[in-house]
Simulated scan of single mutants.
Amino acid sequence: MKLNLKISLLALLLPTLLLLASCEKKNNSSFQASAIIEGTAIKVAAQTGGYLLHVNVEEGEEVESGDTLAVVDAEKLGYQLAQIQASLDELNVQHRLATTNLRRAQEDYDYAKTKYERYRDLVEKNAASQQTLDDLKIVHDRATTALESAKQSLQALGSKEKGLAAQGKLLQRQINDAMVKAPISGTITTKFYDAGETIPPNAPVVEIIDLAKMWTKVYVSETYLPHIKIGQTAQVKIDGTSQTLSGTVTWISSKAEFTPKNILTPESRTALVYAVKISIENPDRILKHGMPVSIIL
């Protein structure tokens, strides 16, 4: 009787023990997924359009930040800038003349005002004629008008000077932008134009990818997400070789999303997953943009 009871209890507990063992194995197993390596790709544009004088790089060439990649012909812009500078020089002369005229107008106004006020006091005391005061009033009003006109002329010249200076700065910026420089250090992956071609403004001339620091994304189900932490080390295996690199989890999405169609995992696809970004140092340039790899966490 006791033997039969033990057998019955064992039969009841066996499925539970097998389930616990299965969960423990699953929790201890590592996460593995296929991914595509990506780099920071920048299309470097020529903000100034025109005739392309030089393209100083070729595809596959390494460049440093600040290197001159291409040069657009800016000769016409230089002529326009010289014309603006000549206009500014002329305005400078006019500004000095207007300043002199304003000073004279101010002196004439002060003299006319003083004389008018003096004769006005004399007329009140019956020591001067009203006709003389009326004549001085006319002179005073004319001096006032001339002073206001001199002030407005000087102000107008100042506004023109500011406008021309702004045009000059814009032209100088366009001339500077004719020198297409590398915004980052990296590798030239694509060259869109060659020397001798005419390019429109803001057209990309080359594409640069920083191969020294690569990254990829894997998509993790909510059941495995608690096992992944920021700063966690990831193994990066290059498909078709025995090489393995080390990566670091640098970002975990806080929002669930549907699994992208181009993402394949050994596990069964789940409805919702979380994106995990893994950054990989690539000093020897082993990894390439678009290279398939296997990620193990």
Rank of each mutant, 00 (worst) to 15 (best):
I7N: 03
L9R: 08
L17W: 09
K26Q: 06
N28F: 00
S30V: 01
F31C: 08
I37Y: 09
A41Q: 07
V44A: 10
T48Q: 14
L52F: 08
E58D: 13
E59A: 15
G60D: 10
V63P: 00
V63Q: 02
S65I: 10
A70R: 07
A70T: 07
V71G: 01
V72K: 15
E75C: 03
A82T: 05
S87A: 13
N92D: 11
N92P: 02
L97D: 13
T99H: 08
R103S: 13
Y109L: 12
T114Y: 14
T114R: 15
T132N: 10
L133Y: 05
D134V: 06
K137L: 12
K137M: 08
V139G: 14
D141A: 09
R142S: 13
T145C: 08
S149P: 02
Q152M: 05
R173T: 14
I175K: 11
D177V: 00
K181M: 12
P183E: 15
T187V: 14
I188M: 03
T190C: 11
F192Q: 07
P200I: 03
P201V: 09
P201N: 10
E207I: 14
I209L: 00
I209F: 02
L211E: 04
S221Y: 03
T223G: 02
H227T: 11
G231P: 13
I238Y: 00
D239W: 08
S246M: 02
T250M: 05
P260I: 05
T265Q: 05
T270W: 09
A271M: 06
V273P: 07
S279I: 01
N282T: 00
N282S: 02
V293G: 05
